[in-house]
């Protein structure tokens, strides 16, 4: 069944998508590595960012393909800039916020920022119960400002090219057409 789903792609030839520059070759050395960061550390940073995005996406009730676009934006950004100079967590927040807009699943900046703060506290092992950031408080305002400037900066670095076609989008669509079960979707996804 999975094989069948993959061959369907041929029928979508007329859909013009620019896949030429979509993925980086494996040989690319990331700027973090060039700046002297070890591979292991970089991997950890990327993992942390992606986890943050995933958790944030779940709490914001975003569909999984939007979350994966957010991850792609996050990873792309760190192929241009190093982890040492740009804060990884706020970049994750901005990446997901951009993804919500690109994928037409708009969420309010307020919601994204407050949830981001909540998730960050969970991941850092904050003592429960976790306090939720108050809307309009000074820490909220400063985090809001940071998120907006991070978004702006990310856009500039990525040159506003945000058209990301993840395979997941097509995968979900094919499974829907083939009326596959949830198990099939889970298997195909991983």
């Amino acid at each position: 069944e999975i094989n069948e789903a993959l061959t369907l792609d041929k029928y979508l030839d007329h859909v013009a998508t620019d896949l030429d520059n979509q993925y980086f070759p494996l040989s690319v050395v990331s700027p973090s590595e060039l700046a002297g960061m070890s591979k292991e550390d970089e991997r950890k940073c990327r993992l942390y960012g992606a986890t943050l995005i995933q958790q944030l996406g779940i709490l914001l009730r975003l569909p999984q393909d939007t979350i994966s676009v957010g991850c792609s934006i996050f990873h792309r950004f760190y192929y241009k800039k190093t982890f040492m100079k740009c804060d990884c967590s706020i970049a994750a927040c901005a990446a997901l916020f951009i993804a919500t807009k690109v994928e037409e699943q708009p969420r309010k900046l307020r919601d994204v920022v407050i949830t981001f703060d909540y998730v960050k506290k969970i991941l850092s092992g904050h003592e429960r119960p976790i306090p939720v950031m108050l809307y309009g408080s000074s820490s909220f305002t400063s985090l809001n400002k940071d998120a907006v400037s991070a978004e702006k900066y990310m856009m500039k670095v990525l040159g506003f090219s945000l058209k990301i076609d993840t395979a997941y989008k097509y995968l979900c669509e094919y499974i829907r057409i083939l009326q596959g079960t949830g198990r099939l979707r889970q298997k195909a996804w991983n």
Partner: peptide, 18 residues
């Protein structure tokens, strides 16, 4: 009401780039 970069602007940029 400012939500970062406007969503319709992003849409327009996205389409024109493609």
């Amino acid at each position: 009401k400012i939500q970062g970069i406007d969503f319709t602007t992003l849409r327009e940029i996205n389409i024109l780039q493609e």
